[in-house]
Every structure is written in structure tokens, then in C-alpha cells.
Computed example of a mutant assay.
Amino acid sequence: MLTDAGLPAFLDDLGLPGFVDIHVHFMPDNVLRKVWDYFDRVPPTVGMQWPIRYRTDESVRLDTLRALGVTGFTALAYPHRAGMAAWLGDWALTFGAATPGCVPSATFYPEPGVLEYVRAFLDRGACVFKSHLQVGSYDPRDELLDPVWGLLAEAGVPVVCHCGSGPFPGEFTGPGPISEVLARHPNLTLVVAHAGSPEYAGFLDLVEAYPRVHLDTTMAFTPYLNALAPFPDELIPRLHAAQDRVVLGSDFPNIPYPYSTQIQALVDLDLGADWLRSVLHHNGSRLLALP
């Protein structure tokens, strides 16, 4: 069984220089603490508690990632209301520019001026955007976002989108709404967070229908998420076939178990060393345009 301390040796055995994790959260301190407070208050009806495993200062979290062998990562931040996305994106871009290994990240929200600030973020070098349909409670088909999706599709910049209905469904979650966005913008580089939990099959359909749709592994296949929304065994062959469209995500630091649990869960799928190399490093490196 892998441990955090054993991950560098595991990487060596695979011949990889490090993990590339497309779903890591760094945020302004006051925002992150509100996120942690939210997880601390996860209702008992969910069936599990959600203790934050890596609840440490920012500098300690960065040192932890490096010790784990993570060499490329994001600083995903996301707004829950209008008026937040512009300054969150500015913070994430500034953080990424100053932090070795962290790619410039940004976000958006359906509000007046969204196209202008997304264009400005791209001009500043944003390599990845975060969209959270559940927390933001917005419709991805909003007319304010249509030119944004088009701009991001043209730029080829990935959008990590929480569009699945786990752990709580939202009005605009599930494959339906985002599939209409893809129908209008079929070249959009969409990364479906949490492998689309719990609508795994529906999001695999999108991977197979659109050449730039990917799944991230965030929490998927772990004992924790499998207790809530198990990944169906009959979908494993389709996951194997999607080798070039599955990318490592973890939700670090906001996870209730060691980082190595996510890696072990991927190993336990028994899809082979080549699949692991693609998922743990190569696909993420390509999506984030890492050297």
C-alpha cells in the first residue's frame, strides 16, 4: 500500500519526473478558510465526515506537494457569486507567476464584463480556468458565457469544470447542461472534475463524443468516494480506452485522506503502467503546456 513518503520511489519505478496534478487549490487565505469551514460543516446526511487532511499554512502546503513528488499543479479558485471572479483570477495568476511548479490559473462567472476579464487573463498567460457549476449555481448555457466558452475553445486553454452532481446535485449539474455548451463549442478543452461523479457513464459519453473532453481523477476510485458513488466496474474498459483523456486530479489540500490514497486507487484499477504514466504525468503536462 502506497504512503505519502513512498511516492517519490513509486515515481522512479514508473520512470516519471513527477506528478502533474490539474486539480489543486490555492486561494487567498480568507477564502480558503471559508472553504475549510464549509467542509467542516458537511451534514451527517452525506454519511461521512470530511476532515481536511492538509490544513496547514501555505508555505507548508507547497513544501508538502514537492515532497510528494508533484512537479506541476494548479491554483484553482472559484467564485460563488458575482463580483469575485476578477479578483480571484488576479490572485491566482499572481500566485502562479511567483510559485515554481504552479501554472497560471484563473476563473470566471456569468456577469457583465466576464468576456473582458477572461480575455485579460489569457493575455496574462492563464493556462487553465476553473468553473464550478455546483458552488456557483449558474447555468453554463448563460448567454453571458457563450462568447467566453468560444474564446477559451479557440485559445485551447483547458477549463476544469465541476459539472457532475456529486456530492450534492445542483440545478445545472449533470451531463445535460454542459453537453449543450459542447454542442455549440465542440473544440472546447473541457476537463470534467471528479470523473463526473456520480454520472460517470454520461460524462464518458462526452469524452467519446468530443475529442478535447477529459476526465480528472479527483477523489474518484478512492474508498472515500466509492462509499458515496462507486465507479461501476463495467465502465473500466471505457476508462482504459480513454487513456489519453484522463488526467490526475486530487483536490489537495481539501481531501479527507492522504494524497497517496488517490494514487493507490489509480494503481488498483490495474490498467497498466502505460496508462498510469499517461494519467499521472503525460496528459496533465500536455494540457497545462508544461515543458
Rank of each mutant, 00 (worst) to 15 (best):
L2C: 11
A5Y: 08
G6M: 11
G6A: 15
L7T: 10
L7R: 03
A9P: 04
P17C: 08
I22H: 02
H23I: 00
H25S: 07
P28T: 06
N30Y: 15
K34Y: 13
W36E: 14
R41S: 15
Q49C: 11
Y54N: 07
R55F: 12
R55C: 08
E58C: 14
E58G: 06
D63V: 05
T64K: 12
L65N: 03
L65S: 05
R66A: 13
R66E: 05
A67Q: 14
G69S: 08
V70K: 00
V70L: 04
G72Y: 05
A75D: 00
A75K: 00
A77P: 01
Y78G: 01
A82K: 09
M84L: 13
A85T: 03
G89V: 02
G89Y: 01
F95M: 03
A97P: 06
A98N: 13
A98Q: 13
C102E: 04
S105A: 11
A106I: 01
G113W: 09
V114G: 07
L115W: 07
E116D: 15
D123E: 15
C127W: 00
V128S: 01
K130W: 02
Q134R: 14
S137R: 15
P140T: 11
P140N: 08
L144V: 03
L145S: 04
D146T: 14
P147E: 12
V148K: 05
L151F: 13
L152P: 02
E154K: 15
H162I: 06
C163M: 07
C163P: 04
S165Q: 06
P167Y: 09
P167V: 12
F168M: 12
G170F: 08
F172T: 08
G174V: 09
G174Q: 10
P175R: 03
A183I: 05
A183K: 14
R184I: 08
P186Y: 11
L190C: 06
S197A: 15
S197V: 10
Y200D: 03
Y200E: 00
G202Q: 04
G202W: 02
F203N: 01
L204Q: 00
D205Y: 10
A209Q: 15
R212F: 13
V213Y: 02
H214V: 05
H214R: 10
T218I: 03
M219V: 14
M219S: 12
A220R: 01
Y224R: 12
L225N: 05
L225H: 06
F231A: 04
L235G: 02
I236G: 01
R238T: 03
R238V: 01
L239Y: 01
A241Y: 06
A242I: 01
A242K: 00
D244I: 00
S250C: 13
P253K: 05
P253C: 08
I255M: 14
P256T: 07
Y257N: 08
P258C: 09
Y259G: 03
T261E: 10
Q262D: 10
I263V: 15
L266M: 12
L269E: 06
L269F: 10
D270W: 09
D274E: 15
R277A: 13
S278G: 11
V279Y: 03
H282M: 04
A289W: 05
P291W: 13
